[in-house]
Design a protein around this nucleic acid. Structure first.
Lengths: 178, 178
DNA sequence: CGCATTTCAGCCCAACTGAGATGC
DNA sequence: CGCATCTCAGTTTGGCTGAAATGC
């Protein structure tokens, strides 16, 4: 999506924040601004990430699968484990891996110790593709804007939201003040 | 989506952060953790928001249109303006407003001063629906977890990302330290 | 005429549901 | 047998493109 910023206009999020308070929803205003900003930043980030991966014909979801596999000891993981680690639906894992297999980036084999389960294994081509794509994404990660200390602070606060929602957070991550 | 947390496992994001540094991508590690955490929190938030709006048969996108219309002086806005304010594609505005009109929450009229343009106008039913839905969302906003001061800090840092991406930010929002 | 605004048809993709197959 | 794991077909959804219609 290529949406031009509205010319000569104020920040829509700041404006909404003002209206929220004016309408007597003051206690919810900081949360409302936080949520709206997260949604907007998510949109901006996904656009940049997709653009960075575009020429490699990889979606962010498929990249994450490759990356996760490469991080394991033998470059393999059961389908179900992929889903729980990446928080995606089992059926989505099936289709993403199918696409990766079609592209020769992973192959599938039934689990040697449990024939119900099938392993996704990253191929040499898959590992090769990780070098340039990781570099492209790291470029995005390094150009976010805020200083590393602020990014760590950002993660700390967001982890508070994850914790409240029941997400599993490491204790250390919740405390660390940069 | 209702995805159970993986039992007995560490935080996947913290683990990825560790691996990122171990692989020599240290400078990108804070940004990588920030992006991954934003993506995850976005996912959690959208699930909660959709759940809160579910019984009103409203999507978040359609709620935002109603809210934006209610905030204007006459409860009306041209289609194009809706799109630029909410950062959605013109064709998406058309379909969202069509759905809202079908539900009797907005009606459409051609712009009195420019016949090319059509105005979306919120109806009395639309305004009525905003009371309980706003209350339901405010409940979500108030229960995010972090204190208001931290939420403001969160917005400040995220605005740094928006600014870097060329989003229009109010100067005040970029400076405010809570 | 060029340009702006909106709509529409059509496409693609992601995600989910429910049913089934297989094996523990 | 109940349960876990995965796959598949089908549906829905959102968002996009490109073209058309209308009027400035």
């Amino acid at each position: 999506m290529r949406l031009a910023a509205e010319a000569g206009t104020i920040d829509p999020i700041a404006e909404a924040f003002r209206q929220w308070k004016r309408n007597g929803w003051g206690p919810a205003a900081p949360g409302m601004a936080a949520v709206t900003t997260i949604v907007r930043v998510h949109q901006l980030l996904m656009a940049r990430i997709e653009e960075a991966l575009d020429r490699y014909d990889l979606s962010f979801a498929r990249f994450e699968i490759l990356r996760l596999l490469a991080f394991t000891r033998h470059g393999e993981l059961p389908m179900g484990k992929l889903g729980s680690r990446l928080q995606v639906h089992p059926a989505s894992v099936t289709s993403a891996v199918k696409r990766l297999e079609f592209d020769g980036l992973v192959r599938r084999m039934t689990h040697p110790e449990d024939n119900r389960s099938t392993l996704a294994v990253i191929t040499a081509d898959g590992r090769r593709l990780l070098a340039p794509t990781t570099a492209a994404l790291n470029q995005v990660f390094e150009d976010l804007g805020p200083e590393p200390a602020d990014l760590n602070e950002l993660v700390r606060i967001l982890n508070g939201i994850r914790a409240e929602a029941g997400d599993r957070i490491e204790a250390s991550a919740r405390e660390s003040r940069v």
